[in-house]
Design a protein around this nucleic acid. Structure first.
Lengths: 200, 200
DNA sequence: GTGATCGCATGACATCTGTCATCAGGAGAC
DNA sequence: GTCTCCTGATGACAGATGTCATGCGATCAC
């Protein structure tokens, strides 16, 4: 019997996933978590074989939870995400996850993937993997990503500067560099583009 | 037996919901749709008792599908959404839906809600309904919403003007008015705020 | 040591944005 | 008819933003 931890912030989805997986003879849901912190705690308490984590989960995202769980245990991790971009996959693999499943995967496949991972194999969505190999990597530096992230809410240069503890002029330089790299001419367009690509 | 149409663009979620609902003795899933256009078509073909539609669904959103379905048939509609804001609820009720269910609803409740709606009652998430009654309505005019919508991707005034077929100066006026109403001082912050509120 | 590179900052300049006052043409109200 | 709204448009102005050249210190290779 493969024991699972299911983590998703949306009760409806989490419950539906649990129902789906409990239909399988060899799978059982040992615990459910609605937040990334709960996921880490419940993984520690219940020691499931596999943790199925949603990527989009407050307060820290599922990636952070995945890092923590795999750092302190041998629990295998399958990351489920709506925002399946090559960049996200890269980050997920770096965090030590064994499975990467976009929400566009047919529901019937999920149980098979779980069994695969339980058997020690890895699973990565083939489409995403293919794009990850061909697509360009993120050309932005850490600082550039940081200021772009801060500008997503429409903040002014001054506000961004305060947030990242830099001089306003410096912020403008980073934004300018990012805009040039992304081929746009406003930081808002740059932030939008970077978000689309899964870079921030 | 209550016959259902399930529409959600994410295969995994749709399949999980189907599994969840098929567990109930008196419910059966007659059709599944992955797009809003498919939802309309399958509703016409299969004549389910109730259509369970995800709000966030390409190409037109679930609201549009809900309008079309309820315009041409007596099929009852339950709208499921991640982005449950009072403004969205208002629009949903105007579109003629019988049930409004945020994805934070416990999975165990969904079947009960479906039975309620099938019995001719309405269901609206109580929290959202309460906020809808107390919270301020959207203060923005149609034009203001239109230009804000167009500015979400970080477009320049000139690009927005081209999109909405107005003079650049006029666009600036509308944006300025919207910014004043929302208490911010950049159109990007205004667009972000309006999006947060579910107005665009 | 020297030199190269990198991260952070500054200042000058042209352009874009946001604000505001104003105007022209319709649509209704009376 | 006149008067009043409303939508769309224009122009002027201040301030914010994007671009670019430059400076300064720390680090690293040699």
């Amino acid at each position: 019997m493969i024991r699972l931890l299911i983590a998703d912030d949306e009760d409806l989805i989490r419950g539906a996933l649990t129902a789906l997986l409990e239909l399988e003879e060899d799978l059982t849901v040992a615990a459910e978590a609605a937040t990334s912190t709960d996921a880490v705690r419940l993984a520690r308490e219940h020691r499931p074989d596999i943790a199925v984590l949603d990527l989009e989960m407050p307060p820290a995202d599922g990636l952070r939870a995945a890092e923590e769980i795999s750092a302190e245990s041998a629990i295998k991790i399958i990351l489920v995400t709506r925002h399946a971009r090559p960049a996200v996959l890269r980050r997920a693999l770096a965090a030590g996850v064994q499975g990467f499943v976009p929400k566009t995967t047919p529901a019937t496949r999920l149980a098979e993937i779980i069994r695969d991972v339980a058997a020690g194999r890895r699973y990565v969505d083939p489409d995403i993997a293919a794009s990850a190999l061909t697509e360009d990597d993120c050309p932005l530096s850490d600082r550039e990503l940081e200021v772009l992230r801060a500008s997503r809410t429409g903040a002014s240069i001054r506000e961004i500067a305060a947030q990242v503890h830099l001089a306003p002029g410096t912020v403008r330089n980073y934004l300018s560099a990012a805009m040039a790299k992304l081929g746009v001419n406003s930081r808002h367009a740059a932030a939008h583009r970077a978000w689309e690509q899964g870079w921030i």
